[in-house]
Write a protein that binds this DNA or RNA. Structure first.
Length: 694
RNA sequence: GCCCGGGUGGCGGAAUUGGUAGACGCAGCAGACUCAAAAUCUGCCGUUCGCAAGGAUGUGCUGGUUCGAUUCCAGUCCCGGGCACCA
């Protein structure tokens, strides 16, 4: 370096021209402009009749929720890794799809609107602009022409459309797949619903003739029990003072985060997705994808498949009433020392004795104020004796029935048979309330600690005496089934997914209600757009803000009959239906966005089949583990439904999933890239290059 | 409470199958170059004792297995994520 150069370098020359300094501000801005002008990152689908000679590769990031704070420091961590990998694959000769978009429906925008009166669409738009400029400054290679925003009507039109497919489908238990509900209707019309074996139970089964004689409402109720998107009743966090439903994280220690008002549980009509129907396929599918073992374990734990038996216990003094429990250990039935039922079961009020009623009622009031999370996390043992006794169907022994918050109504039958010598929680309960403990496992139980072994030889167990527990399991189930007091049962911890929110800022349901029957809107009515509102305050009786806008709710009201199959019968008649006022939850749009990126402009369908056949699965999906059991399971389910309905050609959305760490840092990016390619040294060089631009 | 991760220098993190703990980098210190600085280059860089050679100690903690443990086992503490209406 000569003196002259040094001088140029020293001077704060704005351009850096003539100096050795890398003027990243100018150079990056110039190149970013150039990339934009030349559509440098544009990705093409194969044209009509044209096979692209490059192999495809799909690299996807979990798209961000555009919060007001702008890009979070955690976002670029995964995005940088995927960007590097996309460039690498592109240089390797692949046609790489590497899109970005925004998960732009959600609670924070609505809360902000409540506080400030600014329309969520406005703040969302602003936030997205900030995010995009930040992402562009980093220099990512996104093809922005493929951007999706879940709150854009052009996008949520297809979210609603997929919802209609879910609504109009049922899960065929024989073929283990989704099929159009019209096929079920046809079956009911021709064959009815009669059992293949076993008794015909009126109320559950019906003949074809009976089906035809049912009223429309009766038919609709039966079909609702099979639809993949269906209506039911569920408990929500209800805050009387705010007049609204609260999200779990808006509730802190039983009171609302805002204002500290009391929160109780309230039962409201809710939409659900029948994800439990897919439990086994979601489990099996894990074998065909490349996720970390921890991720797979989290998902299978969430699904929580277990096998055991449902057993009916008679209740002393009640002829008709049976107490049905689910247990994974029918072999321990002679060791049952007490029963525990979930406090909210109706059964409680039926069987409670007169003298125990005050204590039971007091406990019920306590439980009503407790969230499920609090109940499960509670270390303190609590419960109340109902005053009623169950009768052990095999031994005839009378067993006290208790209620306690540690038994949840939503899992199994909401009632358990407690075997203290084999279950720690049962033992603690028995000790706390001085309930005598029966030992059925001899020396395996020391009186201090419960032993959940399956290898002990049974004692004090009637006809099971002398059997090893593992073998006794089958013997017990057979005895229960032979005597009609129990059945073998596979159970899942996973529940159907609640799919409605009493909120404004989400996809409206394309459903109209009349006389208690849900009618789907015709596809031609989509998108059913969100109305402008003046207030984001909740509607009456826990309904969402949309209930405050009669013009919107009744827009299909008096004169316009919805077209399409369901509605044809009423053509020409006055309809008078009211639109559903719930909206869809945040995960609706994110359950299928990876498909829309493939064909974002399509006005005819959510994604052309030829296009989805070309891009196929996401080859590499990068995101955080916090979505392990939410988003990932939902999108896997949606993919399976679309596959079953022959709308796409693959039934797992993500071939490979890599979780970025929780802590940000450039070297960890290097590490992931190293793992992906196996070329640690080379990738390091690339990283340095990238880092200068970061 | 339950499920999944994690805990290694001042910092980010290596050590993938049990075999030299701390690679590589950041920061720091010293030196070279310079009038001086920046940049660059070289050296040092866990803690501790020692002038040094060298020794002791050290991967959250307590034990165990082993000739040998960051790695395997048991227990325990702490931190992060999830637990069904945050996204």
């Amino acid at each position: 370096m000569n003196k002259e150069d040094k001088k140029a370098n020293d001077s704060n020359s704005p351009s850096g021209v003539g100096g050795m300094e890398y003027d990243f501000r100018r150079i990056e801005k110039d190149w970013q402009k150039k990339w934009k002008e030349t559509n440098a990152y544009k990705v093409f689908n194969p044209g009509p009749g044209e096979g692209l000679n490059k192999p495809k590769f799909y690299v996807l990031d979990m798209f961000p929720y555009p919060s007001g704070a702008g890009l979070h420091v955690g976002h670029p961590l995964g995005y940088i890794a995927s960007d590097i990998y996309s460039r690498y694959k592109r240089l390797k000769g692949f046609n790489v799809l590497h899109p970005m978009g925004f998960d732009s429906f959600g609670l924070p925008a609505e809360q902000y609107a409540l506080d400030t009166g600014q329309h969520p669409a406005e703040t969302t738009k602003k936030n997205i602009a900030t995010f995009k400029s930040q992402l562009d400054n980093i220099g990512f290679c996104y093809d922005w022409s493929r951007e999706v925003q879940t709150s854009d009507p052009n996008y949520y039109k297809w979210t609603q459309w997929i919802f209609l497919q879910l609504f109009n489908s049922y899960f065929c238990n024989t073929e283990k797949k989704a099929k159009p509900i019209t096929e079920l209707i046809k079956k009911y019309e021709t064959k009815g619903a009669v059992p293949k074996s076993g008794p015909f139970i009126p109320g559950k089964h019906f003949t074809a003739d009976q089906w035809k004689a049912f009223s429309e409402k009766e038919q609709a109720d039966i079909l609702m029990k099979r639809r993949l998107a269906f209506c039911g009743y569920g408990e929500v966090n209800w805050c009387e003072a705010l007049g609204t439903v609260l999200a779990n994280d808006e509730v802190v220690n039983g009171v609302s985060e805002r204002g500290g008002h009391p929160v109780v549980k309230k039962t409201l009509r809710q939409w659900y997705l029948r994800i439990t129907a897919y439990a086994d396929r979601l489990l099996d599918g894990l074998n065909s994808v490349d996720f970390s073992d921890a991720m797979k374990e989290m998902q299978s734990n969430w699904i929580g498949k277990s096998s055991g038996a449902e057993i009916d216990f008679a209740v002393k003094g009640f002829l008709e009433t049976k107490l049905r429990v689910y247990t994974t250990r029918p072999d321990t039935i002679f060791g049952v020392d007490f029963m525990v039922i979930a406090p909210e079961l109706d059964l409680v009020n039926e069987i409670k004795s007169a003298e125990q009623t005050p204590a039971v009622d007091e406990y019920l009031a306590y439980v009503k104020s407790r969230s499920e999370r609090e109940r499960m996390a509670e270390k303190r043992i609590s419960g109340v004796f109902t005053g009623a006794y169950a009768v052990n169907p095999l031994s005839g022994r009378e067993i006290p029935i208790w209620i306690s918050e540690y038994v949840l109504a939503g899992y199994g039958t909401g009632a358990i048979m407690a075997v203290p010598c084999g279950d720690e929680r049962d033992l603690k309960f028995a000790t706390h309330f001085n309930i005598p403990v029966t030992n059925i496992i001899g020396s395996h139980f020391n009186g201090e600690e419960a032993n959940p072994t399956k290898d002990a030889i049974l004692e004090n167990s009637g006809f099971l005496d002398g059997l090893v527990m593992k073998e006794a399991m089958e013997v017990a189930i057979k005895a229960l089934e032979d005597n009609g007091i129990g059945i073998r049962k596979v159970n899942y911890k996973m529940r159907d997914a609640a799919f409605s929110r009493q909120r404004y800022w989400g996809e409206p349901f394309p459903i109209t209600w009349k006389d208690g029957i849900a009618y789907p809107l015709d596809e031609s009515e989509l998108p059913l757009t969100l109305p402008e509102v003046k207030s984001y305050s909740p509607g009456p009786d826990g309904e969402g803000p949309l209930a405050n806008i009669p013009d919107w709710v009744n827009q299909f009201g008096s004169e316009i009959p919805p077209s399409g199959s369901q509605a044809k019968r009423r053509e020409g008649t006055k309809f008078g239906g009211a639109l559903e006022t719930n909206t869809m939850p945040g995960y609706a749009g994110s359950s299928w966005y990876f498909l829309r990126y493939m064909d974002p402009e399509n006005k005819e369908t959510f994604c052309d089949r030829k296009v989805s056949d070309y891009w196929n699965q996401v080859d590499l999906y990068i995101g955080g583990t916090e979505h392990a059991v939410g988003h990932l399971l939902y999108s896997r389910m949606w993919t399976k439904v679309l596959y079953d309905l022959n709308l796409i050609g693959f039934d797992e959305p993500f071939k490979r999933l890599v979780n970025q760490g929780m802590i940000t840092g450039c070297i960890s990016v290097y590490l992931y890239f190293g793992k992906l390619t196996g070329f640690k040294r080379k990738s390091k060089t690339v990283l340095y290059f990238e880092r200068r631009r970061v």
